[in-house]
Amino acid sequence: MRIAVIGAGGVGGYFGARLAAAGNEVTFVARGAHLEAIRRSGLVVSSPLGEFRAPPASVVANISELGPVDVVLVAVKLWDTEDVAGQLRSSAARTAPVLSLQNGVHADGILRDRLADEQVLGGVCFISAFIREPGVVVHNGTLQRIVLGPYRDAQKATSDAVLATFHDAGIDAETSDDIERVVWEKFVFLVGLSATTAAVRAPIGVVRAHEESRRLLREVMAETVAVAQASGVRLDSGFADDRLDFCDTLPADMTSSMHHDLEQGNRLELPWLSGGVADLADRLGIPVPRNRTVADILAPYVMGRPAGHA
């Protein structure tokens, strides 16, 4: 397949390099020092599953430089989604199927609004990976899973073709006939993990070990389940308790990308996580006091570390 990967960070870099190593024609869209390093030496992924490399010729600086492709993988931060959709619409890749591997439940809606609705497949990924230095991505552990699926019956053949390509590249992947539910299931956990680790400023082991912060974790997730149900998504009312049990199985030092970004003074995806839950709840007339409080507490940090804050 000819595959465009927009965003060559931990997620896009890992999956794109695996696909390139399997013989697919992969083109990354990257920026800054990462772009220049890939141009010089290619993109290297260091993983317990082996080392994968994409060649130097596999990167461009802008979406406008993409040629026709068979599928587009979107792996940028959520605040870049609208810009990506706009650029895709005027590029040579404008008719290709699009699969977002971004966090949350908002990205697919943005893409479906701005591109042809039938282009956008649903998907989620499960992986821990990050840029160690320009041109080098490190994969933590062996988890590297993607679940994808069609929003419409007419997309099933495309979804199956992308799945086969993932399997041929050694990626743990599967399809779902109810991909919207799967996206929300991940979102419930992601909101809980992100909200609590960032608000407590500690990994999940600390959060779950204390009665008050454990209760916060459960209630943040329960509110998110309520918003999903009110939105017409089939989630069981006990799903928050299921995810709380899952949190008890996680390594004690596991944290969230939002907690990491907070600690580094980087911009936060808060408006699409707890802030996004609160905004959706407002439209639906549902109270979500825990998520709203987390969003309010972290609001000064959304654009990065505030001036005057060490």
Results as ranks from 00 to 15, higher is better:
residue 150 P to N: 11
residue 119 Q to L: 13
residue 77 K to I: 05
residue 89 R to H: 09
residue 85 A to Y: 04
residue 97 P to N: 04
residue 112 R to K: 11
residue 79 W to Y: 13
residue 120 V to G: 02
residue 89 R to Q: 11
residue 98 V to A: 08
residue 69 V to G: 02
residue 134 P to I: 08
residue 140 N to T: 13
residue 140 N to G: 07
residue 128 S to E: 14
residue 105 V to K: 04
residue 105 V to A: 06
residue 161 A to P: 00
residue 155 Q to T: 06
residue 85 A to E: 04
residue 66 L to P: 00
residue 73 L to G: 07
residue 102 Q to W: 02
residue 118 E to I: 04
residue 73 L to F: 13
residue 71 V to F: 01
residue 137 V to M: 12
residue 131 I to D: 03
residue 124 V to C: 12
residue 99 L to F: 08
residue 67 G to A: 04
residue 151 Y to M: 04
residue 145 R to L: 05
residue 137 V to K: 01
residue 127 I to K: 07
residue 95 T to H: 14
residue 85 A to Q: 05
residue 120 V to N: 10
residue 158 T to E: 04
residue 132 R to T: 09
residue 124 V to A: 11
residue 78 L to P: 07
residue 119 Q to A: 12
residue 101 L to E: 03
residue 71 V to N: 09
residue 94 R to Q: 13
residue 94 R to D: 07
residue 98 V to I: 06
residue 153 D to C: 06
residue 156 K to G: 07
residue 166 F to Y: 13
residue 79 W to N: 05
residue 95 T to Q: 12
residue 97 P to E: 01
residue 165 T to S: 15
residue 160 D to A: 13
residue 90 S to Q: 07
residue 130 F to V: 08
residue 154 A to P: 00
residue 71 V to P: 02
residue 160 D to L: 14
residue 85 A to C: 11
residue 101 L to A: 08
residue 80 D to N: 12
residue 131 I to P: 02
residue 95 T to L: 14
residue 86 G to L: 09
residue 148 L to E: 08
residue 87 Q to N: 10
residue 164 A to C: 07
residue 130 F to Y: 15
residue 82 E to S: 15
residue 165 T to I: 03
residue 108 D to P: 04
residue 98 V to L: 06
residue 79 W to F: 14
residue 81 T to W: 03
residue 69 V to L: 11
residue 139 H to P: 07
residue 107 A to I: 09
residue 81 T to G: 01
residue 164 A to K: 13
residue 106 H to E: 10
residue 111 L to Q: 11
residue 163 L to D: 08
residue 117 D to I: 10
residue 109 G to K: 11
residue 107 A to E: 06
residue 125 C to G: 03
residue 138 V to R: 09
residue 160 D to C: 11
residue 119 Q to H: 10
residue 100 S to A: 15
residue 104 G to H: 11
residue 115 L to S: 09
residue 159 S to M: 02
residue 161 A to I: 01
residue 97 P to A: 02
residue 134 P to W: 10
residue 108 D to L: 12
residue 164 A to I: 01
residue 80 D to G: 05
residue 119 Q to P: 09
residue 132 R to K: 14
residue 97 P to T: 04
residue 86 G to H: 10
residue 150 P to H: 09
residue 129 A to Q: 07
residue 79 W to P: 01
residue 133 E to G: 03
residue 139 H to R: 06
residue 158 T to F: 03
residue 160 D to H: 07
residue 75 A to Y: 00
residue 74 V to S: 03
residue 92 A to T: 03
residue 118 E to R: 14
residue 67 G to C: 00
residue 131 I to C: 05
residue 114 R to D: 04
residue 127 I to D: 01
residue 116 A to Y: 11
residue 128 S to P: 00
residue 88 L to Q: 05
residue 138 V to G: 00
residue 84 V to E: 12
residue 79 W to T: 05
residue 91 S to M: 06
residue 103 N to E: 04
residue 113 D to N: 15
residue 122 G to C: 09
residue 93 A to I: 02
residue 155 Q to D: 10
residue 91 S to H: 04
residue 122 G to P: 03
residue 92 A to G: 10
residue 147 V to I: 15
residue 113 D to L: 10
residue 107 A to F: 03
residue 133 E to C: 06
residue 127 I to N: 00
residue 70 D to W: 13
residue 137 V to C: 11
residue 89 R to C: 03
residue 106 H to T: 15
residue 106 H to N: 14
